[in-house]
């Protein structure tokens, strides 16, 4: 047993070293958000800032951070709602009626895999024609390009796992198809629905390329705001760090809630986890 103990200790040390490497950049980011200008532009670097006040957070939110978070929230909420409503309807139809067959289902999935740079180019021209550049609806609609196929596949997986007998019983009891869907199937997949919604929200919140190209001066999601601060003449690291932390906290909370469904969501349902 002695040798095994040695191996176990080595494994634990290895895991903790890797964990430290994985987390150190976050720690540095948090520390930076509290540093004054003289403390981040200095060598050797200052590790512990002299004061832990929220000055740079307030300043960062004033420099467009608050507006960015508001815009991201509006866009992410609406696109999530759109994906969830239409996505679960389509998923139910695919799961229960196999409408269009397997090829149709895989066509929907393939839309999710298109390179964003390839789809944003024609969309940019399309929205320019509609005079929709720099509007919420342009981004809400564009994000459904990713979120709709995702929601359809996730929800299809959840409906597939639901025994059909329950709905059949409801149908015999005189419930219509619609009633069986709304009153029986939907409540039973509620946890999956929430997981899918959180994934859609997280994707839209974190997205950068579409936001950069389709937003401009009126609509500036938080990711574009952060990138803009970096591109500025004088880089305010503490403010940038502060905004990036504020923008990450809701996402981290969601990821923790999602843990059970994480693998499934990340692999588009290919690995059930």
């Amino acid at each position: 047993m002695r040798q095994r103990d040695g191996v176990t200790v080595m494994i634990f040390v290895g895991v903790f070293v890797l964990l430290a490497i994985a987390l150190a950049p976050f720690v540095w980011n948090v520390l930076t958000s509290f540093k004054d200008k003289g403390e981040y532009f200095t060598y050797p670097p200052v590790f512990i800032p002299s004061s832990f006040d929220l000055e740079h957070y307030i300043q960062g939110l004033r420099l467009g951070g608050a507006k960015g978070i508001k815009d991201s929230f509006i866009i992410a909420s609406f696109t999530t709602l759109l994906a969830i409503v239409f996505g679960s309807l389509a998923a139910y139809s695919l799961s229960r009626f196999r409408i269009g067959g397997e090829n149709f289902a895989f066509w929907i999935l393939s839309v999710r895999m298109m390179p964003p740079i390839a789809s944003v180019l024609p969309l940019f021209l399309f929205f320019r024609f509609l005079r929709w550049l720099d509007t919420y609806q342009a981004l809400i609609l564009t994000y459904s390009l990713v979120n709709l196929p995702f929601a359809v596949w996730m929800m299809k997986g959840f409906f597939d796992e639901l025994p059909v007998e329950l709905e059949e019983a409801a149908l015999i009891d005189g419930c219509g198809r619609l009633g069986a869907f709304l009153r029986v199937a939907l409540p039973l997949v509620a946890p999956g629905l929430v997981a899918t919604a959180l994934f859609c929200f997280m994707f839209s919140w974190n997205e950068f390329l579409f936001a950069l190209i389709l937003g401009r001066s009126r609509v500036i999601p938080v990711t574009v705001n952060i990138a803009g601060l970096i591109g500025g003449h004088e880089i305010l690291w503490a403010e940038i760090s502060a905004v990036s932390i504020v923008a990450s906290v809701p996402i981290i909370v969601m990821a923790i809630i999602l843990q059970r469904y994480l693998v499934r969501g990340l692999t588009l349902g290919a690995v059930k986890g």
């Binding site: 994985a22 060598y43 952060i226 970096i230």
Partner: peptide, 27 residues
């Protein structure tokens, strides 16, 4: 869960963090 954090946050935030870490003079 702790191991998963880098993947959950926005790539833009990842870029920010590493931009500071890679800084030639002060990183």
């Amino acid at each position: 869960t702790l191991f998963l954090l880098p993947m959950m946050i926005s790539p833009v935030v990842v870029g920010c963090i590493w931009r500071i870490i890679y800084h030639y003079q002060y990183g």
